[in-house]
């Protein structure tokens, strides 16, 4: 097993705060430290109150993009290794405090198994998407207010392609074959610059 529970908890907290931080600074102003949060606001140590995207905020979508976890070597549609299964559980754990509205996976065992623990945990269906046509889906989710925080599990080539599309760039290259620990938060909001934080989990 790769992660101890404590280590995971620390990571989890870091990620969650990173996520909130990211959600809460639409103008890109740096928020130093978070003192507390409630449903609507995030309070900083220096006494500032920052509005979190409201329930009915119709224009903001946050994409949580990950490549599938460690895969085996069996055939064309391999499943996850024990490390991979653990990472899939870790992902669900990390996303525990984030309200995920949709979970999307490509139609492969390794991606579905990566997404499943989160979907189960959130009580959401596992939505299948076609990575070749993902720009159409991404465009739809950016426009449709129902999509708030979307987990999208894809592949070493399709995840960078999604980043390039959402951020209107071409700088993201295929993820290294041995790299499974990247997690990208991309926040799109009408009339604002799309933001990215990339972290490891």
């Amino acid at each position: 097993m790769k992660h101890t529970i404590n280590f995971l908890k620390i990571k989890l907290a870091v990620l969650f705060f990173a996520f909130l931080f990211f959600q809460s600074c639409p103008n890109g102003k740096a928020v130093k430290t978070i003192s507390s949060i409630d449903q609507k606001y995030l309070y900083t140590m220096d006494g500032k109150k920052i509005k979190l995207p409201a329930e009915k905020d119709t224009t903001t979508t946050t994409f949580i993009l990950v490549r599938h976890a460690e895969k085996g070597v069996n055939g064309k549609d391999p499943d996850l290794t024990p490390d991979g299964l653990q990472r899939a559980d870790d992902l669900a754990e990390i996303l525990k405090q984030i309200e995920v509205s949709h979970v999307f996976s490509t139609d492969y065992i390794r991606t579905k198994d990566t997404a499943r623990p989160t979907a189960v945990d959130k009580g959401l269906p596992l939505d299948i998407y076609n990575p070749s046509n993902q720009n159409s889906l991404l465009g739809h989710m950016v426009m449709d207010p129902d999509y708030k925080n979307v987990l999208l599990v894809g592949h070493s080539n399709s995840i960078p392609a999604a980043l390039n599309h959402l951020l209107a760039t071409s700088v993201y290259e295929n993820i290294d074959h041995e790299e499974y620990d990247n997690i990208y938060f991309v926040r799109t909001s009408d009339g604002e610059k799309t933001k990215l934080i990339s972290l490891k989990y």
Partner: peptide, 15 residues
């Protein structure tokens, strides 16, 4: 092909 995929923003698209 990519122009079409990018232009139509729907959950399920098939060209």
């Amino acid at each position: 092909y990519e122009r079409m995929v990018n232009a139509f923003k729907v959950k399920n698209l098939k060209i």
